[in-house]
């Protein structure tokens, strides 16, 4: 079933715009890529290219298994050359992508259920 485009409330649209399209130490394209990879299966995440080396394990763990993320995951990012501002932005991008995908799946279910009797 094709889904209508989801219109987010203004507070969410503003948050998405700032984190995924606004200025930062990392490129907006990289933030969009980590957010897209963090989205759960079934969400309408945009197609993006492969992530730079060393980033995927952090993104996958934070997105899908946050309870088991540890200091070593952050250390690995530092070793890969990311500074604190970049790590901050990437973590926010991943968290937003994981959350946005869930919101989208929930809103799609509501839409597909049809109007309430």
């Amino acid at each position: 079933m094709s889904r209508k485009a989801i219109k987010y409330p203004a507070v969410i649209a503003n948050l998405i715009n700032a984190v995924l399209h606004g200025p930062g130490e990392t490129s907006a394209l990289l933030r969009q890529a980590v957010a897209s990879r963090a989205a759960p299966k079934g969400a309408n995440a945009a197609e993006t290219g492969p992530l730079p080396p060393g980033l995927a394990p952090f993104v996958d763990r934070l997105a899908h298994d946050p309870g088991n993320l540890g200091s070593a995951d952050i250390t690995a990012l530092r070793v890969a050359g990311y500074d604190e501002d970049e790590i901050f932005e990437l973590a926010v991008g991943v968290a937003l992508g994981a959350a946005l995908g869930r919101l989208e799946l929930g809103l799609a279910a509501l839409q597909e259920a049809g109007p309430c009797d």
């Binding site: 409330p9 969410i12 934070l62 997105a63 946050p66 309870g67 993320l69 995951d73 952050i74 973590a91 926010v92 991943v94 968290a95 937003l96 994981a98 959350a99 946005l100 869930r102 919101l103 929930g106 809103l107 509501l110 259920a113 309430c116």
Partner: peptide, 30 residues
């Protein structure tokens, strides 16, 4: 809906889910 939750109630729960999913992950990261 059968349990008596309105669509407004579902949307509000989805917003809480969205917000909490974000901060839980930042808590894990930092």
């Amino acid at each position: 809906r059968e349990a008596g939750v309105s669509d407004q109630g579902i949307r509000e729960a989805l917003l809480v889910s969205f917000l909490t999913a974000i901060m839980n992950r930042l808590s894990a990261a930092f």
